[in-house]
Design a protein around this nucleic acid. Sequence first.
DNA 1: CCAAAAGTGTTGGATGTACACCCATGA
DNA 2: TCATGGGTGTACATCCAACACTTTTGG
Lengths: 239, 239
Amino acid sequence: MARPTEHEVLAAVLQIRCGSLQVLAWQRALPPDSGRWSLPGGLLGDDEDVEQSVRRQLAEKVDLGEVTHVEQLGVFSRPDRVPDVRRVATAFLGLVPSDADPAVPPDTQWHPLAALPPTAFDHAAIVADAHDRLRAKLSYTNLGFALAPREFTISALRDLYVAALGHPVSATNLQRVLTRRQVLEPTGAVAPPGPAGGRPAALFRFTDHVLRVTDAFAVLRPPTGPPSGPGEATRVVVP
Amino acid sequence: MARPTEHEVLAAVLQIRCGSLQVLAWQRALPPDSGRWSLPGGLLGDDEDVEQSVRRQLAEKVDLGEVTHVEQLGVFSRPDRVPDVRRVATAFLGLVPSDADPAVPPDTQWHPLAALPPTAFDHAAIVADAHDRLRAKLSYTNLGFALAPREFTISALRDLYVAALGHPVSATNLQRVLTRRQVLEPTGAVAPPGPAGGRPAALFRFTDHVLRVTDAFAVLRPPTGPPSGPGEATRVVVP
DNA sequence: CCAAAAGTGTTGGATGTACACCCATGA
DNA sequence: TCATGGGTGTACATCCAACACTTTTGG
């Protein structure tokens, strides 16, 4: 009767490299789907939950210290998503700062999302979900911290947002929005100008390195009476 | 070595009944956790994905026609979440309109979230996640359609939002926000006043009965140039 | 005519985009 | 001093919460 059900975890690890958003994948040597590119992951172990598992599996491909953010995307469970066996996957989004260059195994490479080679199983859908989630959260959380170096100029940060969002972003307004929300703070230092000259750029850092919702409810917020209780509700849709 | 992994689906089905947000649960007759209250659900079948499965399982407890919205919350996978066996759960949020009164099996009851009896396993955490998701999406989507009757007055809708959000909501502003976003439209009809008199209330309906994000990116939106391409990006965090 | 409930008008604040303008540096 | 990149100031639009005021009913 019931086929045994396996459970795997898969991570779309994203990083902005050379100005483009890229995803980490390894090339399958054996069937099924040999030759196609596969997201890092593996079977859920007996003594771990999916979050622990994805971190353990990722550690086999990259230095976990370089992965600044991991969050669950959802379950992929079509009965035919993997041939022959019944394998349910929990998908994750992982982020690596743009200045990291983690060592990866020889079968593993970064690929621009815009030109993804043929992927195994339903991994392309997972990558698409990861991209959507990243775009959304860049807009209403401080998630940028996970893509940026510890210190950066506003134009460098702008370039990261452009690569991740896929549309032009004004450096002027990016700075204003993020500082008003206290997502960014100046370090006090400045970066030397490039060879073409120009005013030295101030350096900034993210004030916080854990995910925070910075744009609370757009509407239907609780009345602004006396200072409301601790831990105001925020638009935390996905933890 | 590896224990066989089972996969179950569980649904926190929410409805506003008698002015309070309630969740559907059934009382376990047998161990483990006998006597405690459990969310509807069951094991994933061989030929279905988790979305199909949760609908199938829900159909055993309520008329599926009454469930106006179902969405995935995430995976609960602590190794010890269920004793003895390894069982990973995909949790869902389900919504039932406030005017429905679905027949439920004798062991099944509605319970106010504010006074939840002892729950089985990690089901209380699932209910909490469902509540958070509902609160968040009421604010930036048209999800109210899934809680409201087909036609309603603004004050009735306000009461639903108050019950779901847990804080006061101004009927005046609720109407303005939702009509501006074209989430609501007047039916043209009016409801008769109550016994105490008062002006008859206009009846409204939701223009759409599928989830739509109505409050697009708060910030970092693409430049408003020429009319942008089709299907503008929106803050779809969870499909 | 009064109370009750519903709906409209209006104000003020917060937030964001766009754009003009000023600043600091290297050649 | 000029080109270049960086940063600030300001105008304008949008959106929303709050609240005063008007409308329509039943007693």
